[in-house]
Amino acid sequence: MALVELRNISKIYYVGDEEIRALDDITLDIQSGEFISIIGPSGSGKSTLMHILGCLDSPTKGTIQLDGTLLHNASPAQLAAFRNRKIGFVFQFFNLLPKLNVLQNIELPMVYSSVPARERKERALNALKMVGMDNRAKHRPLQLSGGQQQRAAIARALVNNPRIVFADEPTGNLDSRTGEAILDLFLQLSREGRTIVLVTHDPEIAAVTPRRIEIRDGKIAKTLDPKLAGLETK
């Protein structure tokens, strides 16, 4: 069974009389350990898809199964617990809390899963090491460069050991050199066996992932699947 199973997902917004199909009948499986990119022009529905995959939003139609659980039966509190333990998010604008230092920011997901303070600190430091930021633990986010902030945000996404990590335009706010370094970090994490979904509008960035899904006007336009193409990468 796949880690994530989307079946006939549609998301429809109504603005006045107008019907906006942000997502239109999407069916998609994501296996555990995959590194996959969702690509498409701005406004095509990538973020909406990611939000639905990440339990932040619910579809108008269709079903999602995450790690064996059907999501439309889940209560808001259960969804919050899912986001907390099974999902990690990385955003374009980092979204670190400016009043907390880097370590406290990374501890935050564990605060909501009631991990004891000592263990929180230990695990946060480990996550920082993983992204090569252990010498910046006491810094405030605004004292860091964009690349460093994004590394801290990635550490936060990993700290609760999620089943899947979603990154929405993670390099969108970085210069190209720093962006490449962040992509290298994702590649490294993927090699370590993490499941990662990378959302981007940039084909060059999407090129680093083995599997690519192209979205246009809320529909899956093209998929590049190494298995289907017989291009199994190791």
């Binding site: 932040l56 509190a77 919050a80 333990r85 809390l97 909501y112």
Partner: peptide
């Protein structure tokens, strides 16, 4: 408002 959104995204439920 962004802080609250972020807290919810990383797992805060409505009660917290």
């Amino acid at each position: 408002i962004r802080e609250i959104g972020l807290r919810k995204a990383i797992g805060a439920n409505n009660a917290s």
